[in-house]
Design a protein around this nucleic acid. Structure first.
Lengths: 345, 345
DNA sequence: CCTCGCGATGTTAGCGCTAACCATCGTGCC
DNA sequence: GGCACGATGGTTAGCGCTAACATCGCGAGG
């Protein structure tokens, strides 16, 4: 019978399952399961036999069956806005690395729009697929709104913005970052600091505006009206041209490095020297920033840390069943390069 | 009994399963399954009853159980090198979008190194997790090597490089792209074209070198020795400084836009006018290229298309069981901007 | 009018695993 | 020396679904 079985196995090339291993080792499939899951109630000698059998058969456990039996898939879902952008991509990378360490797999749902319907749909698809938890890289108001109405049967963590009260959130301290950039410019003697902001519906953009505005107000300076871009270098360029025509503009804080690049280019074209005539601070510290002309002073966000921290928070929630909500803030770092200098006298 | 069951369900808040739906609709769980899977052998009236019951119970099918029963998880794995970079990130995005359309989920394994062990380990983890197929974004020789030794029990497609003979490959036509860049510079009257290459173990880098070299040779020009960078702006800067000291250098083809940015910066510092003294062509067309100083002439790669095409190839292989190997090449497009001009006289 | 055939369902067996509960042994204790 | 108990391992039931076959009822054909 065993022989016949062997033949069948060889013919069909069907991968070995637990009972095959058990049969070869002379134990039950359950003992094999015990060995695999590190149960202490197996005699060392038996364990050895089982291990040898597994090796001989090239046994690999079937995670799908395991997931069905345990109700846990060891898979987490990530919903993110356009993973082509440096920020989300880096955050995702951080998440993925931490997930690997924690023994989880990551399923990505990358959206081109963070409107409520898209986010809810993505969350739903992931739930349906049986993920153990979901991370939402949700810097937009609509996404936050969607999260408020999200079903609560699966643990959820928001990354970069979200409804603080209902969902745990891990985010960079945008306010402090914006404040440090603005203060840096004031410290250099600039009378005021202009701001090129991100889209109004992005929480990050809002917080950066707040940090900038508050810093100016504390310094007793009336904040000039912020200009609003869409994160792209193109919009930075367009707004930069506007700013370049106003000779009184000597310091600009731009809400991300791409737009800063656009502003830089506009200033070049207008013949304004940097940092001689105009000082510029960006946000993000993308890998290219040190090679802009001039090298960009910017606020570094530790995306990897944000990703890692949110993942660990989610895993903790899953494994302990706790639903506590520790909002976590990751600090920023001002990186001073050559795009900022003393105010022109 | 039904009542008792109802109570239990309500108490436990356990999600409804097929037999619950069946019970409510007065049919067997199998009929419910038929309805869900669109089997024609169900009376319309019955179908309606079942659908109504599903709605009432908020039934959601359990994909894990389905996967166990069918042996198909509707999940694909992607192994990629550093998804922080624009190329891999965009390719991944394209893959993900196409996967969504095809009804598949994507699990990412993002590696910091493409050495053979890492790639094999990642492929293995994904297989173990039960993916139906694997895509490897594998532009490096080691990865290709790993793929040659990959187990063949799961369909596999290589993206951007791979062993053409054993594994289906979808890639951008790097050779033609490099040739078009080089030819463009020759057409502008430059005597020769220098090349800043990517790391030698990257297939893309190799093919770009070949395209450049061949074009020069066909034009009867002896190719100068290529300089080798590591894709980063920093390495472009370092090599750019070297090139900037040689007044005979008037045209450079750089293997990616980041390095081109570094070269640009080095030229600026050396006071060489662009494109007056030196013309430069990059590769990739990242979103920032149009805003470099000067705006960069470059070769656009359609990453989204590469991703989408490879995904469809993989899905086809999975669903038809075919193992044909159509290597697929995606064309490039030369985008002429302001960093190239006539050779100085 | 009876049977064949087919459409519409139900029944039964898994998929490969884990969880919960038994069975069996040897040992130490009274 | 009998008995309880811990150590070890086997047995049995699912997890929720699909696949394959069995069943039933009804209209058509002989």
């Amino acid at each position: 019978m065993a022989a016949e079985d062997d033949i069948r196995r060889t013919r069909r090339q069907r991968p070995a399952v637990m009972s095959d291993v058990g049969r070869l080792a002379g134990v039950s499939h359950q003992t094999v399961s015990r060995v695999i899951n590190g149960s202490p109630r197996v005699r060392p000698e038996t364990r050895q036999r089982v291990i040898a059998a597994m090796l001989e058969l090239g046994y690999r456990r079937n995670s799908v069956a395991r997931a069905l039996a345990t109700g846990r898939s060891n898979t987490l879902g990530v919903v993110s806005f356009d993973t082509t952008l440096y920020g989300p991509a880096s955050t995702l990378f951080g998440i993925e690395r931490a997930a690997h360490e924690a023994g989880y797999f990551i399923i990505v749902a990358s959206l081109t729009s963070l409107d409520r319907a898209s986010v809810m749909d993505a969350v739903d698809r992931l739930r349906l697929h049986g993920v153990d938890g979901i991370l939402v890289i949700a810097p937009q108001e609509d996404a936050v709104d969607a999260l408020l109405h999200a079903p609560s049967d699966v643990p959820l963590v928001a990354v970069e913005g979200g409804p603080r009260d209902t969902v745990p959130v891990v985010a960079v301290d945008q306010f402090a970052g914006a404040a440090s950039a603005t203060q840096h410019l004031l410290d250099l003697g600039h009378k005021t600091v202009w701001h090129v902001a991100g889209p109004a519906d992005f929480l990050e953009a809002q917080e950066r505006v707040e940090g900038w505005r508050t810093t100016l107000e504390v310094a007793g300076v009336e904040p000039p009206p912020p200009l609003v871009g869409d994160w792209s270098a193109r919009s930075g360029y367009d707004l930069g041209r506007r700013l370049s025509r106003d000779a009184s503009v000597t310091a600009i804080f731009v809400a991300n490095d791409q737009m800063a690049l656009g502003v830089l280019r506009a200033m070049h074209e207008a013949g304004r020297a940097m940092p001689g005539d105009v000082s510029l601070v960006g946000f993000d510290d993308i890998p290219e920033s040190p090679y802009f002309t001039p090298p960009l002073t910017t606020v570094r966000q530790n995306f990897i840390e944000v990703g890692g921290r949110s993942l660990r928070l989610l895993v903790h929630a899953i494994e302990t069943g706790e639903r506590v909500v520790p909002a976590s803030r990751v600090p920023t770092e001002l990186v001073v390069r050559a795009s900022t200098g003393p105010a022109p006298s």
